[in-house]
């Protein structure tokens, strides 16, 4: 009997938990407030007035559009690469037992387990060592490397649930390897891959630490924001962009959650 579940929580615990959650969410909500402030020069609170004009100003900024475009392109390609590599790796690790699977898991997780600055500087020095000039592809290279783990985690969790007997059943009924993949494996891991892909996209879209080392003079949206943070030029536009970034990352995360909510959890390990 788990009668304890119906017991009410002590008041102190309730307050502490609620306060903790508030602490997590209030700062993000503030971003939405500031996107509409009339104050241009400082972070005055409460805002002296509210206006929609900054949305229009941000809309007409070509540098924001350029940065956004680059971020979306990088995130798309990096996600595609991560989907292929992560799925292959997860399939190999979960379908067969072989020597060294632990090592492979570790290798996949390492790029996010080690601080991003290490990945960044390592890639940068490798690029300069090999005399590769910074380009769109150097950014993608870095992003794909740490996005693999997100896809991998989601796919491995789902592969574990697609019992081996389903694959055997398919082969038993006359489906060869390719048919089994198409008619049984893919439909069963599809949502997990979609979720992994969305999280990878969100991760890449938001990444700044590694990107600063691999982008050269190019500006992704996070890099654009970082420059504004270090040397604020037009705070209201930054506010609007910040709100946009929250919204763009929010949707794939929510979608990924709904795709995987029954059963396995969305990869708990983030960046």
């Amino acid at each position: 009997m788990r009668s304890d579940r119906s017991a009410a929580a002590p008041l102190g615990l309730k307050i502490a938990a609620a306060a903790g959650l508030l602490f997590l969410h209030v700062p993000i909500l503030l971003i939405f407030l500031y996107a509409f402030t009339t104050e241009e020069k400082s972070y005055q609170f409460p805002p002296p007035g509210y206006t929609l004009q900054w949305l229009a100003v941000a809309w007409n900024r070509p540098d924001v559009w350029q940065a956004l475009g680059l971020s979306v392109r990088v995130a798309s390609i990096a996600t595609a690469v991560a989907l292929v590599l992560g799925t292959l790796c997860a399939a190999a690790v979960s379908q067969t037992k072989f020597f060294g699977r632990e090592t492979i898991s570790l290798l996949v997780i390492l790029p996010i387990a080690l601080p991003g600055i290490i990945t960044g500087i390592a890639l940068r020095s490798a690029f300069s060592f090999a005399e590769i000039p910074f380009s769109f592809w150097t950014i993608v290279l870095g992003h794909a490397t740490f996005c693999v783990v997100v896809v991998y985690n989601n796919a491995v969790a789902r592969f574990r649930r697609v019992s081996g007997s389903l694959i055997e059943a398919s082969m038993d009924l006359g489906a060869d390897g390719f048919q089994t993949f198409r008619y049984v494996i893919l439909p069963n891991i599809g949502t997990a891959l979609l979720a992994g892909g969305m999280l990878a996209f969100a991760l890449s879209f938001d990444e700044v630490i590694v990107t600063t080392f691999t982008a050269g003079q190019q500006q992704t949206l996070p890099i654009w924001m970082l420059e504004e943070l270090v040397r604020p030029r037009q705070r209201p536009v930054t506010n609007v962009v910040a709100m946009l970034v929250v919204l763009v990352t929010l949707l794939p995360i929510l979608a990924a959650y709904y795709l995987t909510r029954d059963g396995d959890q969305v990869a708990g390990a983030g960046k």
Partner: peptide
């Protein structure tokens, strides 16, 4: 979700939000 959303939302935006909060004239 209450834990996952802040975990996954933009790192820079979170830092930026605190810049707003902690500023001398801030909240």
């Amino acid at each position: 979700l209450g834990v996952m959303l802040p975990l996954w939302s933009s790192y820079l935006v979170k830092v930026y939000a605190w810049k707003l909060i902690l500023a001398k004239e801030g909240i």
